[in-house]
Amino acid sequence: MTYSLVNVLAVLVGLAFLWNAYRIVGRGREDLAILALSLVLGGGLIFVGIFPSTFEVVATVLGLNWKARAMLVLSNLTLFVVVTYLFDRLGRLAERVSTLNEELSLLRAELDEHDD
């Protein structure tokens, strides 16, 4: 089995995702979705970097002729999941910021009333 620069880069990026997961746990953050995503992506990249023939099996299962197409299909599906998750998270954060702004305005108004 021959390895190329792409395999080495896949392993390095996978290790970066696993390091991110380690940092999330180390900081005590309770964001399990990001932790799980980092673990799955990191582990997957390392696995594919070490065993590049895996995509030949995936291509066969998906009914594709080339493993490059299987890689593109899986990477697009992964990106779709990640982007959908991030959009959902951004929407929830925007709602929280809006709520905080409303509460801050009410507190300022109440503080101004007490100062008068």
Rank of each mutant, 00 (worst) to 15 (best):
L104R: 11
R29W: 12
G14F: 13
N7I: 05
L72S: 08
A59E: 11
Y85Q: 11
A36E: 11
A59V: 08
S75N: 14
V83L: 06
E113I: 15
E102K: 00
I50H: 02
T2K: 14
F17R: 01
P52M: 06
F80T: 12
E110V: 15
L86A: 01
G28R: 08
V73M: 11
S4G: 07
S105P: 06
D112V: 07
A21K: 03
A109W: 09
V57K: 05
Y3H: 12
G43P: 13
R29D: 13
L104K: 08
L72Y: 10
A10Y: 05
E30R: 05
L64P: 01
R92N: 11
H114D: 10
L39V: 14
S75A: 10
F80P: 13
R89F: 14
V11D: 12
G43C: 09
T99V: 13
N101M: 15
E95L: 15
E110S: 13
D112I: 09
I50N: 00
F17T: 00
F17I: 07
F17L: 04
R27D: 12
I50M: 01
L86P: 04
R89P: 11
L37E: 08
L93D: 07
L74C: 05
L41N: 01
E103C: 01
Y85L: 12
V48C: 06
I50S: 00
G42Q: 00
L39P: 10
V81E: 14
F51A: 04
